[in-house]
Design a protein around this nucleic acid. Structure first.
Lengths: 156, 156
DNA sequence: AAGATTTAAGACAACTTTGTCTGCAATATA
DNA sequence: TATATTGCAGACAAAGTTGTCTTAAATCTT
């Protein structure tokens, strides 16, 4: 698995939040129910995103969590970096420490290219793009396919 | 981490074996000592490669393990597929089951491209290529840098 | 045949990630 | 001020991965 489950959950939650019209506080419970993700686990992940300024939260009734800025201004790589760090964009393919241009492992050059491509790709994908695809094409965000079953109850 | 530690260890061991002149049985103990990998753990990993016909083993004194075919005929992707399976080459970026062309997740198309690139790359790299680089450039295979310190004791 | 060497196999421990539970802090509403 | 609702925080459990240890099986040497 390229990304940790924490990261996957965080991304899915962010896409869902961006896919809902009007950026308002939304309860984590609602998100975890909708996407079928453990509530407390998701809470911790969203805390990380909040601490990194990608989301903002508010306690109390009608509180919840919301995107701290426009989905246009949130890149997929921002979410990945916040949750999984940027190790995957820097570390050696063979997991060797201190692998770099000076003393590279045998796969170094090859992998560096791919790694850059991945970072490049994730840097071009905006949260708004992903959300738009969800809304337009009914893409799936949960294992239970709740979203698309809601949007397309007659299909399948 | 893109590949599991098991896979990293297996690849490093394979490269080392290919880098040594003459394809003879080599004891796992020697490999684990040289590359600073847990002996028993490495044994299990190499068992997998043996079961998949990539290596062959022989018990008893002067026994050990060797590449089952020429390093020319072993691709990096063979090692990865044997140890980590091909999930990483097929699974959804968001970890959703049943994600495919029919009902893709929002990242599906983008990731499919990268995934193919990675598989393509790993399919072009032969074990012999990697071993040649180790021998020619003194690339590192262990965290302790044993190989390059042996090959280049005066540098550093 | 006996003993040494080596891989094979499985039990088990340590560690990391993932998931659950409980209580606390902040906030709105009545 | 009391109560309900919500995120915050930490302890803890479950599961998966990684690493260790012991015994068995195969094989060579003597």
């Amino acid at each position: 698995m390229f990304l940790s489950k924490s990261c996957l959950y965080g991304i899915r939650a962010a896409i869902y939040m961006a896919s809902v019209e009007g950026n308002q506080f939304m309860s984590i419970r609602h998100i975890s129910d909708t996407l079928d993700i453990s509530f407390h686990f998701l809470t911790k992940i969203l805390q990380t995103l909040t601490q990194d300024g990608i989301m903002s939260s508010y306690r109390g009734p009608n509180g919840g969590i919301m995107l701290a800025r426009s989905p246009d201004a949130i890149l997929l790589i921002d979410l990945v970096r916040s949750i999984d760090g940027d190790q995957i964009f820097t570390e050696c393919f063979l997991g060797l420490p201190n692998c770099g241009n000076a003393v590279p492992c045998p796969v170094h050059d090859h992998w560096a290219t791919i790694r850059t491509d991945i970072a490049q790709l994730l840097s071009t994908i905006k949260l708004s793009d992903l959300a738009a695809r969800v809304n337009t094409f009914g893409h799936r965000l949960s294992e239970n396919d709740i979203l698309s079953s809601i949007k397309k109850p007659e299909s399948q």
